[in-house]
Every structure is written in structure tokens, then in C-alpha cells.
Design a protein around this nucleic acid. Structure first.
Lengths: 254, 254
DNA sequence: ACAGCGCACATTGTACACAACCCGTTGCGC
DNA sequence: GCGCAACGGGTTGTGTACAATGTGCGCTGT
């Protein structure tokens, strides 16, 4: 019960997600991965002390990592009440998807203009990895890699603010997929990713944007955002029982 | 030299920027304002200890505030070297403006759909404040209020991710304006803001978007982003001397 | 005199200790 | 029996001490 990774002090990279940054980057990346791969369920409490013990660092580091995660929207930071894995509501999911459509359209157009040959090759490699993960049955890694594909695309668009925003949107999208996906197995279909790369390489902006928009359609057609599937938001679960008054504490009509 | 604000412990709001949050919100807001109103020049070093002494809090709080500011792009956090006020390069400025066009278009369309009567009234009030500031000659406050107008518009669009992104973009835009503005006095012309509100209130999406795009044109037509006015980015200043190789350390050709 | 090295100071990074706060429980009073 | 209030455990918020890193100055040797 008291297990702990090796102190990861100067260890160049720990596991897979190791970046070449300082400790909080490592902690950040690990928690991030764990959430996106659904090893941490939405609503799970993220105790600072427990995490600190697990990673062998002090609460200071954990706190910074949680703060970054909160900025990206995958963690909810409740004052004096601790951090929990975010569980986006249906409405929040819709907002994220709306914003993503917007950003993906722009990124696609820019990528058509600016993507280099090396970047296109990297993108193809990522699609391969993604396909491997899914065929290996590693759903979590698949979701993550699919997200990283879209992030790499944003980098090819060569616009720093958009990259940063896209990182946040992709994170939240992955969380939403993990939470709301209906049983359907073909997730972020990698075929569409491949076609998209082809269109970008051919510098066909109209086609690329079209493909991307259809891709977006497919993604949220796979989600059941209409009926809430076992939400842990009590207000949402029992909303049909509540009187729809505006402010104040809502009360059940018996 | 050792002056210090009163400890601002439970003081409901300190000065003008006081939010109803905990201490770091206050510190954050003060530094934020100081930067946007150009009381802190780009490149200025932000020593943690000095700021802590000024605000009467420990470095912990300052550190969090700086972290937030760094996330929004108005502060640059160099590992082990401290924080400085960001000084966006011309290229960075262009990227911010590109992203903003994108976001403002979307926000305008959404605001046309969702803006409530109260919000429109608030927006009009903000334009009034802005006009007052400029007529009073308070350029800094004018820039800030103009930014807050665009932020309020984002809130009327009712999309959380867009609001957050817009906050970051507006901050950086204000910094860019403060840095690159050519002497021209009519800044974010409030007339255009008023017309924009009228169009939104009339629910005329096409007109509103048109006005917003022209507004964006006016903003960066007031900047001289072509000639770098004494940039302190050495790489930019000496770029014509550098060999344009991709990776590795660039070296001068003598 | 100038280049190179090394030390000392200043500043940031991290850990830890104490204080404040929230929540669940227990006990009392009605 | 029920509601309310005080208490206690546990978790987070903040301040501070120490360690690590970067920077600048002075020293020395050529």
C-alpha cells in the first residue's frame, strides 16, 4: 500500500511520457496520461499527499502539476476541497466540440499552407502508431495517440496560441470521449486521419477542411451526449424531478 | 525603498483590481494591470522576493500569480532565471492577431445568438467607461477596458473554452498594442464598439461579423509590425547575420 | 593587458512545518 | 426522536528554511 516509484531524481525519462523537463513536467505527464487513458475515472479525488508519495516528490510539485492540469480543463480544482478528475457535463462537452470545430478548421487551412515534408512524415508515423494501438486493443493509448495526432497537426499550423488552445481542447475531448463514448469500437478512425494527411500533402485546402469537418462529425456522432450515461452530477441525474425555478436551492416535488 | 502595501489580508478589495478571490488573485490582477497599462515595460525582470515584499505576501503566492500570467502569455518564465514581462516578437504578434480574428469572428456570431439584454447593457456601460478613460487621457486604463470589452463579449457568447482562450489573446494583444502602437491616438475606437453592440442587438450576424473584422483591421493597422522598433530579441535583431540552418546553435558568418 | 578559471553572491527550486479550513461525528438540548 | 452545535480528524493553504543553479566579479597566469 506504500509503494512508490523510484525517486526519479535525475532519471532521464521515466516510463513513456518523460519529457526533458523538470520534475513537475514528469508528474504532469503521468497524471495526464492516466486520465486520458481512463486509468483515472472522472470524479476521482486527487489527493496531493497521496500523489506526492506515489511519485516521490513533495506536495509542492504535485500542486504545480495539478494547477497546470486544471488550466487545461482535465482537472477541477475546488478551493479548500482538493482536486478531482474533471467530469465534463453534456453542456461543457458541446462547448468544447463547438470550439474544436472552429479551431480544427483553422488549423487545417494553416497546415495546408505550412506543413513541411518532415511533419507530414511524422503525422503518418503517428497514424501508424495509433492503428497499432487500436489493433492491439489498447483503447487508452489509442485515444491518446489520436489526440496527439491532432496536436501535431496544430504544430504544423505554426501558430503558438492555436497550439496551446488545441492542447487544451484535445485534452478535454479525450476526457469526453472516455466518458461518453457509446460502445462503438471504431473511435477516431485512423483512415480519416490518413486521408486528411493526403489532402494536406496535396495542398488541397478545400478538401482537407471538408475531411476534417466530417471527421469532427464522426467523432461526436459516436458519443451519446443526449442521454446522460450514468453521470455523477446529481443535479443532472435528478433534473427531471427538480422544479425549474431559477435561483435558490432546488427542491424535489414529491 | 522598503515600502509595502498594507498586508491585504482580509481587506475586501484592494485598489481597483480587487477580485473576490484569495490573495494570489489580487497579486495576479495587480501585476496584470501594471503590465497592460505599461507601468511595467516589456523585458522587466519580476523578482519573486521583491514582489513578495511589495505585496506583503510570501514567494509562494507570487509564484502562483506569475505562473498564471505565464500561462496567459504576458509573462515569460525562464527556468532558473526568473520571470520577465513578455516582449512579443513581431512574428508572435502576427500569430496572436491571426488567432484573434478567428476567435472574434466566432464569438461575434455566438454573441448574436446568445447575448442577453442585460449583457448588452453591460457592454454599453463598458464602452462608456472606455470612452471616459481615453478622454481623461488615461491611455493604460483605456487599453485595459477595451480589452475587457472584448472579453465581456466572449462571455456573452456562452462558450467556456472560447472565453478562456479569448482572455489569453486579449492579454497578449494589449501587451502588443502597448509595445508596438504607433503614435496614433485613436486606439480601439469605441465608436466601432458601439456599432458592434447595435448590430448584435439587432441580431444581424453578417453585419456584426463585418464590423468586427473591420475593427480587427483597424487595430493592427495602427501597429507598425513591419519595422521592429528597437526589439530586444537579439535573434530578431541580428537575424540577417544568422545562417538559416534548422537545428543546432546558429553561428555568425563573419 | 587580456583570456580563462574559480569563487561568492544572488535568485530560483524544493521540501517541510504550521495554520486555516472543511467535513463527518458525537453529544447535548429541545 | 430530531435538530443543532461543538469537537476532532484530515486535507489544503501559506510561510519559511535549505539546497541547487545561474551570474558576475576578481584573481591568476601567460
Amino acid at each position: 500500500m506504500n509503494e512508490q516509484l523510484q525517486p526519479l531524481k535525475k532519471q532521464p525519462r521515466a516510463g513513456k511520457a518523460g519529457r526533458s523537463g523538470t520534475q513537475d513536467d514528469i508528474v504532469y505527464a503521468h497524471i495526464f496520461e492516466a486520465i486520458l487513458e481512463q486509468r483515472l475515472a472522472p470524479g476521482t479525488k486527487l489527493s496531493e499527499e497521496a500523489l506526492g508519495e506515489i511519485f516521490g516528490v513533495s506536495r509542492t510539485i504535485i500542486r504545480r502539476a495539478l494547477s497546470r492540469l486544471a488550466h487545461e480543463g482535465v482537472v477541477l480544482l475546488r478551493p479548500n476541497r482538493g482536486a478531482v478528475v474533471a467530469s465534463p457535463s453534456v453542456e461543457e462537452a458541446r462547448q468544447v466540440f463547438l470550439a474544436r470545430r472552429l479551431v480544427e478548421r483553422a488549423i487545417t487551412e494553416l497546415a495546408v499552407q505550412h506543413a513541411s515534408t518532415e511533419e507530414l512524415a511524422e503525422l503518418r508515423q503517428m497514424v501508424n502508431d495509433e492503428r497499432d494501438s487500436f489493433s492491439r486493443g489498447d483503447r487508452g493509448a489509442g485515444i491518446r495517440l489520436s489526440g496527439e495526432f491532432h496536436l501535431k497537426l496544430a504544430e504544423a499550423a505554426k501558430n503558438a496560441p492555436l497550439i496551446s488552445f488545441q492542447r487544451s481542447l484535445v485534452s478535454q475531448t479525450s476526457l469526453i470521449i472516455a466518458q461518453y463514448e457509446s460502445g462503438n469500437r471504431s473511435h477516431c478512425s485512423y483512415d480519416e486521419h490518413t486521408q486528411l494527411i493526403d489532402a494536406i500533402e496535396a495542398r488541397d485546402s478545400a478538401l482537407a477542411v471538408n475531411l476534417m469537418m466530417h471527421h469532427m462529425d464522426h467523432i461526436d456522432s459516436k458519443l451519446n451526449l443526449d442521454e446522460e450515461s450514468a453521470s455523477d452530477d446529481l443535479h443532472a441525474v435528478f433534473s427531471h424531478l427538480l422544479q425549474t425555478k431559477k435561483p435558490g436551492r432546488s427542491s424535489i416535488k414529491l
